[in-house]
């Protein structure tokens, strides 16, 4: 077993875990933060994207022990319970950027990372290129792209 301690959504979290535990398992099964999804489990689909030290990573391909001492933000950490949604979440709601919703947490975490890296004015081609690591099996990309463009602008205000 291995002791891990990290900051998750601004709160210290600890665990005594099997070293094999993936970060996404630790988040979902130990911390019960089930907003982060497991889709392909092969670092292709992006349903498990969280921020590790402020950068988007695929939590199915990070060992929880390797995140020990670091900061993690999940979809639950974007807006506090009862508080208004994060502007990117609100944009997905407003523009119906989802169908079944399974890929949505990963899409939103990727989108926020994209805004952090490339700013608030994002063209369609840039958004589509940047989404290459996030798959929507409903193929609802059109509204996802619309949502991200709107959410990026809203994050500036």
């Amino acid at each position: 077993m291995a002791k891990v301690s990290m900051i998750v959504n601004g709160t210290p979290a600890t665990g005594n875990i099997d070293p094999r535990t993936l970060l996404v398992q630790f988040l979902r099964e130990n911390l019960r933060l089930t907003g982060t999804h497991v889709g392909c489990d092969t670092s292709q689909c992006g349903a498990c994207v969280v921020h590790l030290d402020g950068k988007a990573v695929k939590a199915c391909t990070v060992l929880a022990v390797m995140a020990d001492g670091h900061e993690v933000t999940t979809i639950e950490g974007l807006a506090a319970d009862g508080a208004p949604l994060h502007p990117m979440q609100e944009a997905f709601r407003e523009h119906h950027g989802l169908q079944c919703g399974f890929c949505t947490p990963g899409m939103i975490m990727t989108a926020v990372d994209l805004v952090n890296r490339k700013g608030h004015e994002l063209s369609d081609p840039v958004i589509r290129e940047e989404l290459e690591g996030n798959l929507c099996r409903c193929t609802g990309y059109q509204n996802i792209v619309l949502s991200i463009a709107a959410g990026a602008k809203a994050m500036a205000t």
Partner: peptide, 9 residues
């Protein structure tokens, strides 16, 4: 290489 999240690791 890969995608943005992969390039972060």
């Amino acid at each position: 290489i890969g995608d943005p999240a992969v390039r972060h690791k």
